[in-house]
Design a protein around this nucleic acid. Structure first.
Length: 485
DNA sequence: CTCCCTTTGAAGTTC
DNA sequence: GAACTTCAAAGGGAG
């Protein structure tokens, strides 16, 4: 993919995601089985890229460019490229024939310029319903119902160039957009949560286009949102009224986030868990257990989200939200920089099954004091868990490579309460979570030089990236059974 | 009230 | 261009 390699590949990460890598022995056996799907994905990737390249359009890029500072050399170029890409989408990237096998990938023309407003149901919903749905079937919006392979009348609802008129059909369109449909009105997916809130936000949550977007939230995000809700402090309101609101525009959700939103409720229902951390672990495993096609849906969704986001907020940059969090990760890193290669936390070091060895703060989910103290948790258990918890070779990126509890025990897509017993072979080493966008932005690419030799098996990457099968095998094999039971 | 935890992915920054 | 950092959602837990 020219584009990916050329640097435009950032977006459309979905493409990369689909790259099958062969760092796992299982790949070989897997490939035949997934040959078709992989090929499809490959096609998809190439198609996406090609289309992106082919359909160049200047306008949006220009807008964003114009508004972006000059300081952003690289970023800007990058963005230009993206803008171009997003613009090009009009060219029909998602129209019909493009992905016969991926009807769900059809871009809601709603996002496309030059489209006419249509309440039709053919809109892509960025958000899906999730109740009681299997992950595979959860994407109602992506069902043929919503993504008819070749919609005769493409719902070109959002015409960025016709912003003024959009709001007229706001709710209706949005409901279509974000797919309230297909299942019935009563079913609003968790992922829809942002939608209502966007509506409630009123002007502040309203994009200039008149289109409420989940990404828009009151100034400081969650906390402010809360404040806003209960708020209603006169002063605040007054202030808000007077001052031009500067709604915080959230980052567009990535594929996994979309998946989480959709599946969270389901997992909660199934597992009766409430702690998000635990739920997210499960979701993470499930994510890896998803088939490529399934993941592709989410990647595509995410891509559209990003595109839409870019169109709605041409000047927005992820950097805009930097510093919103109270505590900088960097600080953490510095704190934990003492022993870069080793697990930073007791929980990582000892695993959840040996919480008795944890320091107090770790038990309370707080910062590990051992680590802070520079002790590095040399633990009694370290010897036996070393294979499990501590990467044989220090992970290149300490921060993100903290041992995932998930890896401490066999990954099981199903619900199982927080990890209980580590399975050595899984815990081997968290592959350095190739968090970097490996060269071409493919996080799932086989770890190249950073890949930890022989550790891939444990790598989440390994699971996820290679397809469901591999995921099932890698993660699941051992676990699948566990979970299933 | 605020931060932490936990997940993956995207995007930004740093070197 | 690799490595690293930050943020996105979510909500219970803890200080």
């Amino acid at each position: 993919m020219p584009q990916l390699s050329s640097g435009g590949g950032d977006d459309l990460g979905a493409n990369d995601e689909m790259i099958a890598f062969k760092d796992e022995g299982e790949q070989e056996e897997k490939i035949p089985e997934n040959a078709f799907t992989e090929r499809d994905l490959a096609d998809l990737k190439s198609s996406l890229v090609n289309e992106s390249e082919i359909n160049q359009s200047p306008s949006a890029a220009a807008v964003r460019r114009g508004q972006q500072g000059e300081q952003r050399g690289y970023a800007e170029k990058h963005r230009e490229h993206l803008d171009g890409v997003s613009k090009q989408q009009d060219g029909g990237m998602y129209k019909a024939a493009g992905y016969p096998t991926y009807p769900f990938l059809m871009l809601p023309d709603a996002y496309l310029p030059n489209s006419s407003v249509s309440p039709s149901s053919n809109k892509v919903s960025v958000v899906q319903q999730s109740h009681g749905m299997h992950p595979l079937t959860s994407l109602l919006p992506y069902s043929n119902e919503h993504f008819s392979p070749s919609p005769p009348h493409l719902p070109l609802d959002i015409d960025m160039s016709q912003k003024t008129g959009v709001h007229r059909h706001q709710s209706q369109d949005l409901s279509g957009y974000y797919s309230l449909s297909s299942g019935g009105v009563g079913q609003i997916a968790p992922s829809m949560s942002w939608f209502p809130h966007s509506l409630m936000l009123g002007p502040s949550g309203m994009h200039p286009t008149g289109i409420p977007h989940p990404a828009i939230v009151p100034p400081t995000g969650k906390q402010e949102h809360e404040q806003y809700d209960r708020g209603m402090k006169p002063q605040v309101e007054a202030k808000r009224e007077k001052e031009p609101k500067k709604p915080v525009i959230k980052k567009p959700l990535n594929a996994f986030m979309l998946y989480m939103k959709e599946m969270r409720a389901k997992v909660i229902a199934e597992c009766t868990l409430k702690e998000s951390a635990a739920i997210n672990q499960i979701l993470g495993r499930r994510w890896h257990a998803l088939s490529r096609e399934e993941q592709a849906k989410y990647y595509e969704l995410a891509r559209k989200e990003r595109q839409l986001h870019m169109q709605l907020y041409p000047t927005w940059s992820a950097r805009d939200n930097y510093g919103k969090k109270k505590r900088r990760k960097r600080e953490k890193q510095q704190d934990s920089s003492a022993d870069p290669g080793s697990p930073k936390k007791c929980r990582a070091r000892f695993g959840l099954n040996q919480q008795t060895d944890w320091c107090g703060p770790c038990r309370r989910k707080k910062k590990c004091i051992r680590y802070l103290q520079g002790g590095g948790c040399s633990s009694p258990a370290s010897s036996d868990l070393s294979a499990i918890d501590s990467p044989p070779s220090p992970s290149p990126s300490p921060s993100r490579h903290r041992l995932h509890p998930q890896l401490q025990r066999p990954a099981s897509p199903g619900c199982s309460p927080p990890p209980a017993s580590p399975s050595a072979h899984f815990a081997l080493s968290p592959p350095a979570r190739a968090h970097t966008r490996l060269a071409h932005g493919d996080p799932r690419q086989p770890p190249t030089k950073h890949s930890l030799v022989g550790l891939e098996l444990s790598g989440k990457r390994a699971f996820g990236s290679t397809a469901p099968l591999s995921a099932a095998k890698a993660a699941g094999l051992s676990l699948k059974v566990l979970t299933e039971t």
